[in-house]
Design a binder for these strands. Structure first.
Lengths: 110, 110
DNA sequence: AAATATACATTGACAGACGAAGTATTATGT
DNA sequence: ACATAATACTTCGTCTGTCAATGTATATTT
């Protein structure tokens, strides 16, 4: 993995919300998708992923339910709530602003 | 301040190095410049700033010396070392990659 | 004389990320 | 048949960067 945790820090929840904005999903699947989409350059650690789920559920941004698959390990699915959708939009806007600020600050000024 | 610490986290050292790549400077000045440049939307907290200085000095990325001003409070100036310049370039490259990865991950996929 | 600005330093607490370890079930290769 | 890998979730403890709070000292402004 090339991208460090401090650079991704604070984006975990937004990444999860982005997936759930598309469709209900579960931890293992979301993590696989992230790895695919970044060509393995990034993956969420399980502890990070599941603790983010807990935070988001406690704050009412997502809800969970057990999947009823006949085969395979059991899955806990998550769905995004209106509050979660609002947080997602806010985080996206914050990220846009942060990006432009950081770009300004880390570049040399001459 | 509109930008949260978790989004800026991990960039503090790079921001400092960017200033020192231009010219030797000291904590108070760097922080003022950051505030100006971001129209007060962001400032480093003093504890954050000075602990970043300490980290950077311990790892040999910057060196410090006391300024010899006749008047005003004493200033501890910092200069960037070759190791610091190398770290700066690496951090910039990492940030570029992180930016594109995060943009991919936080956007909806349809 | 008091308040504000300049300038640096230390302490302790907090929150998010993560390593490590564990539990269970199903699929695959030999 | 058996071992290994893959799927899937959970909990615990640790680490690190940020920050609030507080303190020191000097110079300038009101």
């Amino acid at each position: 993995m090339s991208i460090t945790s401090d650079l991704i820090r604070g984006h975990t929840e937004t990444i999860i919300l982005a997936y759930l904005a598309e469709r209900d999903s579960y931890g293992y699947e979301i993590n696989k998708k992230i790895q695919e989409e970044t060509d393995r350059r990034y993956e969420l650690k399980e502890a990070t992923l599941y603790s983010a789920f807990r935070r988001l559920e406690e704050s009412g941004c997502i809800e969970s339910y057990w999947g009823n698959q006949q085969t395979g390990a059991r899955r806990r699915y998550y769905r995004i709530t209106p509050a979660g959708a609002a947080l997602y939009r806010k985080n996206l806007a914050d990220w846009k602003e942060a990006q432009s600020l950081i770009n300004k600050l880390v570049s040399t000024k001459n």
